[in-house]
């Protein structure tokens, strides 16, 4: 089968229709997942074992198993229980869409919680002490000193996690959801032209992830005013340092 540009274009156009669903899944799961993650991160840094331990276990379980298993447990597994099948929740858990969303959100929460914890712990103890010395109460200290610094510290890691989530939405296709990869799989099995389909779908995912990465870079730029100023200066100092070596 020769490489076919017309087919490539047609494939590309049909795959475009999967973008809204993929982005919707990614955005909603990242949003809910981040709320959950924030709670988990707070539990992890609480220094109370009865809060820390459950959070630890949650993170361990969700990071130690494949996302695919998590999706299958929620979508196929839960139907094993008649009680759930007859409850008011069933209309939600019967839908592949909500199951995929739930699994993605629960999964990203585990990874994001560790990223957030790292950010929270990165705030230097001296600065916290200084805030205490100024008479800041716990909540104020947390809101004014810790959270702003932790946020920008964790941005690169979190940007990675969001990109991973965009990729992970492809797994929703395994439970019948026709997002980009779902459409791609259907096109491959109809046409037996995996290369063209892969190139089109790959290009779409790469563009989406490129945009995500740029957005985060922009956010980082806006949250680090002192870095913007120092970049030029540090370049100059580096050059001089080389000469003196």
């Amino acid at each position: 089968m020769p490489f076919d540009l017309t087919f490539l274009w047609q494939t590309f156009v049909s795959l475009l229709s999967g973008i809204p669903l993929a982005l919707e899944l990614a955005a909603l799961s990242v949003a809910t997942g981040s709320l959950l993650a924030f709670g988990l991160a707070l539990m992890r840094v609480s220094r109370r074992w009865w809060l820390d331990l459950p959070a630890r276990f949650y993170i361990f379980a969700f990071r130690g198993t494949p996302l695919l298993v998590q999706i299958y447990i929620i979508y196929y597994g839960l139907s094993q229980f008649p009680a759930l099948r007859h409850s008011f929740l069933w209309p939600v858990f019967r839908e592949a869409y909500w199951c995929a969303l739930a699994a993605l959100a629960l999964n990203t929460a585990a990874y994001s919680a560790e990223i957030m914890r790292g950010g929270l712990l990165s705030v230097p103890a001296g600065q916290i002490e200084a805030a205490r010395a100024c008479g800041m109460a716990r909540i104020l200290l947390f809101r004014r000193i810790i959270v702003p610094q932790a946020t920008r510290q964790m941005l690169p890691g979190y940007s990675n996690e969001v990109i991973l989530m965009v990729k992970s939405t492809s797994l929703a296709s395994t439970i019948t959801i026709m997002e980009i990869t779902g459409i791609a799989a259907k096109l491959i099995s109809e046409s037996y032209r995996p290369v063209e389909v892969f190139i089109s779908a790959g290009a779409i995912y790469l563009s989406l992830n490129f945009i995500v990465a740029r957005l985060f870079a922009l956010l980082e730029w806006s949250l680090w005013p002192e870095r913007r100023k120092n970049r030029l200066q540090s370049n100059i100092v580096e050059k001089k340092g080389e000469l003196h070596a």
Partner: peptide, 17 residues
């Protein structure tokens, strides 16, 4: 940047064809 699932499809269906 590309989902692993797509790569698996490419390798499987590509070599199958």
């Amino acid at each position: 940047g590309i989902p692993d699932l797509l790569v698996i499809y490419l390798f499987y269906f590509g070599s199958s064809s």
